[in-house]
């Protein structure tokens, strides 16, 4: 047994990659019911913030992600849009991230909005890409003061002023909540939206960026945050609509279990190899 464990030390890592890939596919092929944990304070905060938006209120979503962070941001956008549709709350989408972001947002939101009977232009608008190469601070400041000067046409080229919903959205004071979903949301949103105007801001970010933002949850500068697919899965449980986030977080649970197992076995292998080396000496 010890000799077998010691041989793990010389195992080609490619076998580990293959084993991980196979293990991750299993929960995608077979739906395995797994126990759900309770929603974290950060997730619950965003849910409560959406619940607090009045029926005639408008929410602004900055969907600034593309293929690079689709693995977590897609589920985070989906679940919040679904919640807004459940509550019949209207929303405006912008993309301050990359040029690809408006298309990814459109593809994610369109089926959910259509299913909920939302009419484009009246109930929701995709305002498109907002150039922010010179820095987010001036763009967010300008966006907060006059939306129509920053985007004069939506993603389809329709003049912003011609869209019924946009006639009600001029400044950030016309918006009840801002939800920023991207790889690493910029803290400028906190300063220039919550800090200056008092409009609540929530983030949806990649898991690895979450430790940077916990402090803003604690200080109540952020009203809520979805952390990776786990956050999306928690949110889906709150709105009672398990979807992409739940499925992906199940697969992630398998992956995490594989990593823990590999770490234990790897350490046992190292221990066995050291012992064998000592005996050999």
């Amino acid at each position: 047994m010890r000799r077998w464990l010691a041989r793990l030390h010389t195992l080609n890592p490619r076998w580990l990659y293959l084993a991980t890939a196979i293990l991750l596919i299993i929960p995608l092929v077979i739906l395995i019911p797994m126990p759900r944990g309770s929603a974290s304070r950060a997730t619950r905060g965003l849910y409560d913030a959406v619940e607090a938006v009045p029926a005639d209120g408008i929410v602004m979503i900055d969907s600034s992600w593309d293929q690079g962070s689709r693995s977590e941001n897609a589920a985070q956008l989906e679940c919040v849009v679904r919640h807004l549709c459940q509550r019949r709350i209207r929303f405006v989408v912008t993309s301050l991230g990359t040029v690809f972001s408006p298309e990814f947002a459109q593809k994610t939101i369109e089926p959910i909005a259509a299913q909920a009977g939302y009419v484009y232009g009246r109930d929701w608008v995709n305002a498109g890409y907002v150039q922010s190469a010179s820095g987010l601070a001036p763009v967010i400041s300008a966006l907060a003061l006059d939306f129509h000067t920053i985007r004069q046409a939506d993603v389809r080229g329709t003049p912003i002023g011609d869209l019924p919903l946009m006639k009600e959205v001029r400044t950030i004071r016309d918006v009840r909540l801002v939800y920023v979903v991207t790889y690493a949301p910029s803290p400028e949103w906190i300063s220039f939206i919550t800090g200056q105007f008092g409009t609540p801001v929530a983030f949806g970010c990649m898991s690895m960026m979450a430790p940077n933002y916990y402090t803003y949850i604690d200080s109540k500068q952020l009203c809520g945050m979805l952390i990776g697919n786990r956050g999306a899965a928690e949110y889906e449980a709150l709105i009672r609509h398990p979807a992409l986030g739940t499925r992906l977080s199940m697969a992630a649970s398998f992956g995490n279990a594989a990593i823990i197992l590999a770490a234990i076995v790897g350490n046992l292998g190292m221990w066995a190899a050291r012992r064998a080396g000592r005996r050999g000496a």
Binding site: L24, I25, S207, M208, M209, P211, I227, G228, N256, I259
Partner: peptide, 27 residues
């Protein structure tokens, strides 16, 4: 401890990248 939390979250993010691609390839 804080750096450990960051590292753990980084692993989760990398795992998510792989899962998303696996999902694409399979589905």
């Amino acid at each position: 401890v804080a750096l450990g939390a960051m590292f753990g979250n980084t692993v989760m993010t990398r795992m998510s990248y792989l899962i998303e691609r696996m999902q694409f390839l399979y589905e």
